[in-house]
Structures are given as C-alpha cells and as structure tokens.
Write a protein that binds this DNA or RNA. Structure first.
Lengths: 402, 402
DNA sequence: CATACTTAATAAAGACAGTGGAAAAACTAA
DNA sequence: TTAGTTTTTCCACTGTCTTTATTAAGTATG
C-alpha cells in the first residue's frame, strides 16, 4: 500500500539522501552537504551524528580552509557491514563475503557436481552454511544476495524457471531466510549485472541501460529510469529469445529464429570448425589450431581477428549482422542511453565493437544516430559477485516510497 | 535535483494521496479515507478542508449509518478546472476543452491545410488563440496538452522530429507557454494513448502496458511501472521501426524489414487490390467492391473477415504472422502485463484478435504462455483527446519525488 | 601579534504537520 | 429518553526541519 507522509518518512528520506551524498561525493564536509542538497546545516549535523553512531560514516581529517574554520571531512565506511554474494551458474556456485563497496574479503568456488533440482538447493544451503558458520559477526551481515540465470520473481523471492539446473518455482528467498535468519535477495544474473554496471561500473551517470552478454547463450538486462526492468513475472530481458530471422532456426524456447541461435559461442565455434574443414588453409586460425579443435577458444577467435584472419573476420561479420539487428530493434523500442556488451568474444575486441557500432549506425533512425552509445563492460573478472552486491546495495541505499 | 524531506513535502504527499483516494474511491467519507490509507482522521479533515477550499472536492450528501453518525460523503469535482487538449495529426488539428475526467465540453476540428513547418506552428497558435479568447475563466485552465506523432522530448518540451509535417526541433512548450501564459505539456501521441488506456480506460489495474496502433503506420507506446517510457531523447516506443524481416523491404527510416512496412493499412489495401486483380472472383470482397477500389476500407476488410472471405482471411494471416513476431519479441524483452491493440482494422474484429492471441501463444516462451494478455483498446472515438488529457492529469495527480 | 573577517559546526528557539485522546455532533436501538 | 456507536473536529503533544544565534576554528592584514 502507498506510504503516507509522516515525520519518520521525512527523516528516513533525508538520512538516505545525506548518506548517499557522503557515499558518492565523499570525503565531504557537513557544510558542503547542506549546500549541495539544499538542506539546513543543522539537519545535516544531526543526521551525520546518527550515521556515525551506526558506524556507516566516519570523520576523516579536515579539508583546507577557504578563509575560515577548516571543514571536517566525512567518509562512507564500506567496511562497517558486509554482504554475502552467491552466484549460481551451470557449473559453479561462487560465494563470497564483500564489503559495502563490493570489495571481496573472502571467496570460495564450488562445483555444482552436475546436481539438479533439490540437490542443487541443498548444495547451495550447505555451501552458505559452511561459509557463515565460522563468522562471529553475523549481525553485521547486510544480507545474502543470490543470482542465477533463468526467470526469477525477485519481489516474491521465487526462482521460477532454470531449465539447466531443473529448478522450477523454488521459494529460495524464504528457504534461505528461514534457515539462516538473514535478509536474502534473489535475482536474475543479467539483471544483477546491469545493476552492477550502473552501481559499480563506469555507467553510473546513465539511467537507461541495455546490457548484453554473449556466452553459451545471449543474456540481457534492461535498466530503465535507474530501475532494473523485471517485467510482469520477472521474465523481462530475454533479448536472446527475440526473433531476428523469420522462419529461422527452431529454438528450444518454442520460438523461431531467436538471436541466441545465431549469436553465441557454440554457434561461432561450429562455424569456425566447418570453415576449417572446407577451406581456410593458410589462414592464421588454421595454423594455430593444427587440427586440434580444442584449441578453438574465444580468446583465439579474438586474436585471429586482430591478425586479420579472413575466415574469422567473415564469421564476425555474420555475428555482427545478426546482433546489430537486435540492438537496432531495442534502440527503436527502448532508446537506452548506453548499450553495454560483455562476454569473452567482446573482451579486448575493439574490432568487434567497431563493427557493431558502424552496423548499428547504418540501420538506426537517422535522428538517433548521434546518440547511439555502445560500450564494452566496465566490470572486471568479479562481475558475478559485483552483480550480487549491486542488487542488495541498490535496495539498501535507494530510498523508495512505494 | 533530489528533493529533500520537509513538512511541505509531507503535506503535499498526503494531500495528493487523499485527493487520489477521493478521485478513485469516491464518494467516500473522511473516516473511510483515514482507515483506507492508514492515516489519522485529523489529517484527513484538514487536508479535505483545503481541497474543498480549492473546489476540487465537494461534500455530496451523507451515507448510510452503521450504527452511529452518518458519514459525510466526499466527491472529486471533475468540473472544478479544465484542460485544453490539442491533437496534431497529418490532416487534422483537433482542439477541445475537457474537464478533469476527460469529458469533452467543447471541441473543434481544423484541417492542417497541408501546411508544413512554421506554417503549422502558426496555425496551431492561431487555433489555440481563437479557442481560448472567448473564455473568461482562463485561470481555471489546468494546462494545455499537445500531442503529435513523431519524436518528442516531453521533459524539455521539444518536438524533435515529425517528418510528415516537416517539424524539427521546435520548442513548442516554450512557444505556447510564452504566448498564452498557460502551463503546457507536449508529448508523443502513442505515449499519450497508453497513458489514457491506463488512466481512463479499463487497464488501470496494470502498471506495465504495451500499446500498439495500426493505421497508416504502426505506432506504439510503452508504460513501465506506471510511467510512460520515453527513452533517452524521447524516442522510445518506435515498435513500427523494429526489423522483423532481415534483408526485407527498405524502410524510409533507414532500417530494413521494419514492421510498419508489413503491417499497416496501405500495405493491406494494396494486397487486397492485387489479389482482386489476379483472382478473387466470387469472393465477398470482390462482389462488394465491384471494381470501385475506393470502396476498400478498413471497415469493409473487417466485414469481409466476418463473412469468411478467403482472400481477406489469407491477407489477415500474413498480417497476424508479422505482427505476432513483433509482439513475441516485445514480450520476451519487456514482458508487459497487457498488450493493447488499436486501429480501424482491429476495431470490432474478434477474429483478428483471436488469431493474434493464438499465434503469439505458439511462439512465446512456454512459461509465459498463460500470462499473455492481448486486448483491444478500451478508449472510444475520442481517444486522441483522452490521450492529451491523460498526460496532463497524470502529471497533476501523481505525486513525484524526483 | 592583535584585530577583523570567514567559514564550519552546533545550540536554542520557533514553525508546522501529523498523532492521539477527548469532545462534540449526529445517529441507532431499545 | 437513554445508552451506545460512529463520524468529525478540537486541542495538546510530539518530533523534525528551519531560522537565528552562538561557538569554534581558521585566514588576512596592518
């Protein structure tokens, strides 16, 4: 139900704004906060006192004077509390303790042992239990954040659908919360990644983002007006299952000509293999592989492109052509401020980015041409953990009314 | 900039909630409002006093007693103020005075005289001037709302792009506000229609809507989380210019295989014509047209479908096939709660709706099949004016913090 | 180095919106 | 007529923000 206004709401709102100001603009003085957000210095003082009491903010020296008393500088303390992030993928369960800036304090990686269904759930619970039993400061845990591929209804905390792990309609949030008595959040992985790009990455100035990751499939996350788009039942963002070829390949999702069937590593891999078999003698990739197909990796593909391997360049053009169709469609439908690409074949691959940029620019409505902004991911190797952290921190630090 | 919390914000918020409660739930007593929104009766009394002072709410008799004092019933007064709506299309400029429920009090329709560019702007200004000069209660005007096809940056009040009328980067909001000194809002027409479906129509319980209108082109509007999606520069919602046929027809937008080229009335019309020329003897539509091509109208097309005309049925199937590709893509990307179709060929056309529903159900990810909800527009003939009203009323009655 | 001027932070007083309890108003039921 | 109920309002109170000092801690300058 709608929240009505009372003094408590007022205070919560102001404290949240002040804390976020310190977090984003710190080190900053009380006086500067007051000027910046246009609030009385008195209010800042009392709010900061409370935040210091909660150990989430601390005083850190003084700034330089501009003709009067030196300002006391305030900083956000990212180590005042911690988060537990859990990333479930098809082969691994990663778990880590992070501070409030997403810095990893402790981490573990476990195999899924190809478990499925209930076994996976039990495995997750065991892993979490072992991870936290040693901790004596469990009261400082801000929450557990679990991310997974598939369809997740994050508001209800239900993992609705993950076909690879055979998980259907699991009330995972409830299960974890009841077992460990720690606030838990569950979300789709790509939704988490787009949040992380916005929260931790170099895209914090944008509010409308499209994130596309290319791996075994094509995943995507959409942020609109600063909020991750979840759709009616939490299944928004399935760009990989939008049709780009009418009457095209039948997809296991039931649809036809889905982007995912044309743009993913297995598709690229098999194109390379079949090209190598039919021709390609003398090309860079042919010389590198020397008949050992296991040497064909995304990294080698990227390297081949850099070496000007015509065979791989041709394959890249096909991929670019398909992907750009989807990107253009999404621009026309949503017009995001930035489109972020990730995945091994995009990693360190300016050639691919340049090709996508020019292909998209060709097809987009002319008035939008100047605005198209396609960038590689700004998250590093720990993007999964950053994703988990981002969804929980976003929730903690973003004051919401409804 | 972010708004901080003070007593004024608190009061504004509560008054807005109370007014909306009366508007939506009225007639309702002060006491029931207090219970419904969980606020103290005292606060309701003082807020209602102010709203009655502003004439936006009035007392309307008493309700029945449930064992004590009879409640005084409060109603929203839709006639306390009025709105001026202006709809600009390729051939007509419609202007009307509406009350706060979108009921039309006075209306005019003007031809655009095929004017373009500056001439159109001057014509609009003249039409508005003549429409309001006679009014002596201009202080009761809540605002002017202008809607138009094309790309509109509604936050800046700029009409960025309307190729048919040759309007580019017109600061229309500013122009109108400076001339008439009345708060003015400008928005894209389909964005306004989706708002109207949500505000006036039968889709008020939904917060994620996709609106598609089929006419000379394909227009669309997207509402996410109760807010119209405008995109970075106000050009979101161009579903008509998303590719559904790779390597398909070159579109004037620069893209290829755009939905709009396969699904619109001119395309259907020319298919009917060419079918009639090659075959079709003895079919319903052939007998009705009798060689007079001007008799081929959307209404006749719909009638022919009802009569089981095989020629038209085949054309419908093609249209349905193309349209459903786009709808499936949008469901997978955005997963709206409801998809609303409008346009003459959808009007009173259950056959078409049924065909779309079953085609979409076939292609959509199985887990979403049950959730797909495709409905015809709930707005009547005055949808343009309702659209104009909706955008301005939404702004007035929806309390926003940022 | 004393004095005047700045700037930062805090304290005290004041303003004001919402709350809770009491009272008034208006009704029902017996 | 009386007791009980429901609606509405009045009034004192609470609590948060703001304004207006006040204190603290600096700089600039003759």
């Amino acid at each position: 139900m709608l929240r009505t206004g009372d003094l408590k709401l007022m205070q919560e709102l102001n404290r949240s704004i002040i804390l976020n100001t310190i977090r984003k603009k710190g080190p900053i003085s009380r006086s500067d906060i007051a000027k910046l957000i246009n609030i009385s210095p008195t209010t800042v003082t009392s709010a900061v006192n409370e935040l210091i009491n909660q150990r989430v903010v601390y005083e850190d020296g003084v700034g330089s004077s501009s003709g009067g008393r030196k300002p006391v500088l305030l900083r956000f303390d990212p180590n005042s509390r911690y988060i537990i992030g859990v990333s479930i993928s098809n082969s691994f369960i990663k778990i880590s303790e992070m501070n409030l800036e997403g810095a990893i304090i402790k981490r573990e990686v476990h195999s899924t042992h190809q478990y499925q269904g209930n076994e996976i759930i039990n495995l997750i619970l065991t892993i979490i239990e072992q991870f936290i039993t040693s901790k004596d400061n469990i009261d400082l845990c801000e929450g557990i954040s679990i991310i997974t591929p598939g369809i997740v209804d994050s508001s209800k905390g239900i993992l609705s659908y993950n076909s690879k792990l055979k998980l259907y309609n699991i009330a995972l949030k409830q299960i974890v919360e009841e077992k460990f008595n720690i606030q838990t959040h569950i979300d789709n992985d790509t939704n988490a990644f787009v949040q992380a790009e916005n929260y931790f990455g170099s895209f914090s100035q944008y509010k409308d983002l499209l994130y596309i990751t290319i791996g075994d499939g094509v995943g995507s996350g959409v942020m609109i007006n600063g909020k991750t788009l979840r759709g009616y039942k939490g299944s928004a963002g399935e760009l990989g299952h939008t049709t780009i070829v009418r009457g095209g390949l039948k997809c296991e999702c039931g649809n036809e000509g889905c982007l995912e069937n044309y743009v993913n590593w297995p598709a690229i891999y098999s194109k390379i293999v079949s090209s190598l078999l039919t021709r390609g003698k003398g090309t860079f990739i042919h010389d590198q592989v020397k008949g050992d197909l296991s040497k064909i990796t995304p990294a080698l593909f990227v390297q081949a492109l850099k070496e000007g391997d015509v065979l791989c360049l041709r394959i890249m053009d096909e991929v670019v052509s398909h992907l750009s169709t989807s990107i253009i469609n999404t621009i026309h439908l949503l017009n995001p401020e930035v489109i972020i690409l990730s995945g091994e074949i995009i990693q360190d691959n300016e050639l691919f980015l340049g090709a996508i940029r020019s292909k998209v620019a060709q097809g987009v409505i002319p008035i939008l041409k100047e605005e198209v902004n396609i960038q590689p991911t700004s998250l590093g190797a720990d993007f999964e953990m950053l994703g988990a952290a981002a969804v929980i921190l976003q929730e903690k630090f973003q004051f919401v009314f409804q």
